[in-house]
Design a protein around this nucleic acid. Structure first.
Lengths: 163, 163
DNA sequence: GTTGAAAATGCCTTGGC
DNA sequence: GCCAAGGCATTTTCAAC
């Protein structure tokens, strides 16, 4: 059930991440497989949870949310954002990650305006210390996941500490 | 061409972000429109660049990339990551944002292992100062973009500085 | 701008190899 | 994993509201 993905699987993933609406016919042509064969592989990738769904990609700026920011939260005990609020309360928050280190979480937020961002920061600030980073521009986002390099690059150790 | 999205457009976006493979038939039923009508709206959303494409969502962990981290770069003059390397050189980097403030960019990276992460950090470190944050767990990511709240919440000003 | 139906295309699935 | 064929859902077009 936890079989590693072969090269064909990765080609399928690459194609479907670039165009999630390809028919099995088109997809099969691009990876040199017949449509039943490719359909079976896709079904397995979905069943294994590798493919979790299909999503239309929306340009936030074109949809009226031109500002993006990252927020690091260092929540106060008992006021942690993750325990005192719910996703529905903060529709501006599009990503939430728990972190190691001194910050407890990293958020990505999208807003309509600086005024909107200011109001959001006030609400988030209730939960603890906060560091914010406003995004000026985004080079890319949602880049397709690629197969990891097979050559495990060795970590350099010029001083020889690991010997 | 830059018309604001109406409520129906947002319902369409919500459905397609949740399931990008809905047929116009199914989609129309969910937003109370006929299939030609909904097809026309989707075509316009695509043409206007609101919908930028359709993507299969891949679980990075299931695909062999169980570790995620954020990296803030404060590049040295002339060694900026964005000017001295290309996307193909750093397949681990799945997001790049330019930032305001003292850091020049925020990266999201995905790797196979701690060893892999260590090697990546070494390579990134060549370009300047670096702050990294390892993700312990992700609550959500790629949350559908929602219509911004219509009620522009006023920023609080108890002390009256803005008067 | 929207509706409804009808025609034609293309698709998915099944079975046999 | 491939090929072929059957049945089916889909997209698209059109006239009408």
């Amino acid at each position: 059930m936890e079989k590693p993905l072969d090269q064909t699987d990765w080609r399928i993933l690459a194609e479907l991440q670039e165009n999630g609406r390809l028919s099995y016919n088109q997809l099969g042509r691009r990876v040199n497989l017949s449509s039943p064969a490719v359909a079976e592989r896709v079904r397995r990738l979905e069943e294994a949870g590798v493919i979790t769904g299909y999503q239309a990609r929306v340009d936030p700026a074109k949809a009226g949310l031109p500002l993006t920011a990252f927020v690091q939260m260092r929540c106060q005990l008992g006021r942690c954002l993750l325990k005192t609020t719910t996703a529905a309360d903060l529709p501006e928050v599009v990503e939430v990650h728990k972190l190691s280190g001194s910050s407890c979480s990293m958020l990505k937020v999208r807003v309509t305006s600086m005024r909107h961002l200011e109001g959001l920061f006030e609400r988030l600030g209730e939960h603890g210390e906060m560091h914010s980073y406003v995004v000026l521009s985004t080079q890319y986002e949602g880049r397709p996941v690629e197969p990891p390099p097979t050559d495990a690059r060795p970590v350099t150790d010029p001083a020889g500490w690991s010997r």
